[in-house]
């Protein structure tokens, strides 16, 4: 009888963690401008250090955090909605965040937020506008999908998808009434990118994602039971309604925060959970951390490709995730697909 044990947990997570550390370092060193790690570490004021610590490192860290967060949210949404097609882009909050960000960019494009009273500089307020949009849409979707005190998976899925289509229409409308130059900027933001951020933003997002992820992970065992359906989960001792409500709020807050800084980076949240399920199994106590680490590694490399493929120009990272992730996923499905329940 093969079961999940401590040895497998440590081996899988340890290997992925080592791979992530190597990826973070490699991706920070790769770029259109070659840098020398020794020189960067020896002299903090060298151009090498400037590029490594101010331009590349925050971006690589942000990519890892968002890749991990998206993958973890994807795992939980697929379990909770009992739907292998569920992904973070389906929850409604992503649409709300996009709309909030777009409105911020159109109407107050020059607003800046002082960090720590201006001591740490200023950042664009667009992420904050997007996060407010995410919060509002989360409240709205939650309210609309709530029937008799509980979030029904189908209601939640339908409400989220329809809300997102509606918001997409609003965004297209806004995009068609602004001038050409502005429309180009909106489109680039919408396609998702991880352009360099200030460390405080990265730290804020990373803390958010870490807290959300730890909460989700602590419920890993319950998500196993929830995949068996509401009745089975209830009979095996899970307070399904309460876990689902909390998981909705946790994933929504995480997705809202992520979309706010990086736009809609698709595919990570859909694909990574499936790949990891095929590789490490469906037990969420292992699947969640493994998907988090794999998502972090994947987005790290995808963003590096986005930076170097057309250097000095940059591709939106969403294009890279879909372009390389899609065929790999199809290949894996073709080879291992018989293991999936129909």
């Amino acid at each position: 009888m093969k079961v999940l044990d401590r040895k497998k947990m440590i081996a899988v997570n340890g290997a992925l963690l080592a791979l992530l550390a190597a990826s973070l370092l490699a991706c920070a060193l790769i770029g259109p401008v070659a840098i020398d790690l020794k020189r960067a570490l020896a002299d903090f004021f060298s151009p090498d250090a400037e590029i490594l610590f101010r331009a590349r490192l925050p971006r690589v860290l942000l990519g890892a955090a968002i890749g991990g967060g998206m993958a973890a949210c994807g795992v939980v949404l697929q379990a909770m909605l009992r739907n292998p097609l569920a992904c973070p882009q389906m929850l409604g909050v992503s649409g709300g965040a996009s709309l909030g960000g777009i409105l911020g960019m159109i109407f107050f494009p020059h607003w800046l937020l002082p960090l720590a009273g201006g001591l740490l500089g200023e950042v664009s307020w667009v992420p904050l506008a997007a996060f407010l949009g995410a919060l509002l849409s989360m409240g709205l979707v939650y309210r609309l999908a709530l029937f008799h005190g509980r979030l029904h998976p189908y209601h939640l899925l339908l409400t989220g998808v329809i809300f997102n289509s509606f918001v997409a229409a609003l965004i297209m409308f806004l995009n068609s009434i602004v001038d050409f130059y502005q429309a180009q900027g909106l489109l680039f933001w919408l396609m998702g990118n991880l352009s360099t951020r200030a460390y405080p933003t990265v730290a804020f997002i990373a803390a958010y994602i870490a807290a959300g992820f730890l909460w989700l992970w602590s419920h890993g065992l319950r998500f196993n039971l929830i995949t068996l359906g509401e009745e089975a989960a209830l009979q095996l001792g899970v307070e399904v309604a309460s876990v689902e409500r909390q998981a909705f709020v946790a994933t929504s807050l995480m997705i809202g925060a992520m979309v706010s800084v990086s736009g809609m980076i698709g595919f990570v949240g859909l694909m990574v959970p499936h790949v990891m399920r095929l590789l490490v199994g469906s037990d969420h106590r292992l699947l969640l951390p493994a998907s988090f680490l794999a998502g972090a590694i994947f987005l790290c490399w995808a963003d590096t490709l986005a930076r170097v493929l057309l250097a000095p120009a940059e591709l939106p990272v969403g294009i890279v995730t879909a372009f390389f992730g899609g065929p790999f996923f199809i290949y894996l499905l073709y080879r291992e697909g018989r293991r999936l329940p129909v």
């Binding site: 196993n224 399920r277 329940p341």
Partner: peptide, 15 residues
């Protein structure tokens, strides 16, 4: 019983 994701029989029993 609904089974949406791949689990082994032992995993199901252990739930």
């Amino acid at each position: 019983s609904e089974i949406h994701f791949p689990f082994t029989a032992a995993e199901i029993v252990l739930m």
